[in-house]
Simulated scan of single mutants.
Amino acid sequence: MSRVWFITGASRGLGRAFTEAALQTGDRVVGAARNVEPLADLARKYQDQLVRLPLDVSDRAAVFEGVDRATAAFGRLDIVVNNAGVMLLGMLEEATEEQIRAHFDVNLFGAVWVTQAVLPHLRAQGGGRILQVTTMGTGGGFPMVGLYAAGKSALDSISEAVAMEAEQFGVKLTIVQMGGYDTGLFTAGTTMTTPDPRYQELRDKLIEMWGDEAGPAPGTAAPVIMELVDLPEPPRRLIVGGASYDMVQTDIEDRVAKYRAWEHLSRKAPG
């Protein structure tokens, strides 16, 4: 029996890759994005399986209306993928209030609105899956991408709570911590701050460290997602990417070592 997916940010990058993979298995997809024109080729190929839904996830009212339309299109929702995201690239001091608020409106609040909107539908039908696409970098901030990590880290914490709140209704939630893929996030999906020359030395070091490697194609991650949604008891968290897995483990070990180094000071306070 084919499943029904609701995927945000479906027109490019990981969202597009997940949409294609689901369609290829015979599943049906409601692909949501601000601009759905890039999905025109898939709409022609999978006429009865794909519904394109123009949607700005930062608009809460539009999200609730869109989820109702998505549910009506195929009669149910089985797998919800909160994938829509943007990048705000620059030092914190450089970012304007408008840039910061716009960034969180998509990366954090957009996912929150979608989650709020789909839960009544999933509860009414007795269950479903929610995949919250975050990043392997939610364990801590990093220069120039601190606000991106902050939004995804907040979504991580909220999603942990939602997973416990919704499991009684048969809803299974997985936080999908993606590694670095060539999604276009750092090009089409990026807002740049106005550079402050006082940060130029650090900026140059970071650009040199990152290099020009865009990462593997998004389609290489899709088989992992397809296997994940087939699991009867999926994990609460999943790192996607072998190199990213190693980096996260190293970061966790380093953090534990630093906590232990200052354990004596921590224990001087009760509580």
Score class of each variant (00 low, 15 high):
Asp212Trp: 02
Val80Lys: 09
Arg60Trp: 06
Gly211Asn: 14
Leu185Cys: 01
Pro223Trp: 13
Glu94Cys: 07
Val106Ser: 02
Met178Ser: 12
Ala102Ile: 14
Gln116Ile: 01
Ala32Tyr: 14
Leu202Tyr: 14
Ala84Gln: 09
Ser2Gly: 15
Leu39Asn: 12
Asp196Ala: 11
Ile130Thr: 02
Asp41Trp: 12
Ile225Trp: 07
Gly184Cys: 10
Gly126His: 04
Thr8Phe: 06
His103Lys: 14
Val240Ser: 04
Asp105Ser: 15
Asp212Phe: 02
Ile130Cys: 02
Ser266Glu: 11
Arg28Tyr: 01
Ala102Gly: 10
Val112Gly: 01
Leu122Gln: 10
Leu231Ser: 06
Tyr181Asn: 03
Ala150Cys: 09
Pro232Arg: 08
Thr193Phe: 14
Gly179Asn: 06
Met87His: 14
Pro54Leu: 09
Asp59Gly: 13
Leu131Pro: 07
Ala243Leu: 15
Met136Ala: 09
Arg34Glu: 05
His264Glu: 11
Pro143Gln: 15
Gly179Ile: 02
Ser2Pro: 14
His264Trp: 11
Ser153Leu: 03
Val162Met: 15
Pro38Gly: 02
Thr187Cys: 01
Trp113Tyr: 12
Ile130Gly: 08
Asn83Lys: 08
Phe142Pro: 11
Met91Lys: 06
Ile7Thr: 04
Leu53Lys: 07
Leu122Asn: 03
Thr183Tyr: 11
Tyr245Thr: 01
Leu77Lys: 05
Phe142Cys: 13
Met192Val: 07
Val112Ser: 12
Ile175Ser: 02
Ser2Arg: 07
Thr135Tyr: 12
Gly90Asn: 05
Val81Leu: 14
Arg198Thr: 15
Ala33Asn: 03
Gly180Phe: 09
Val30Met: 07
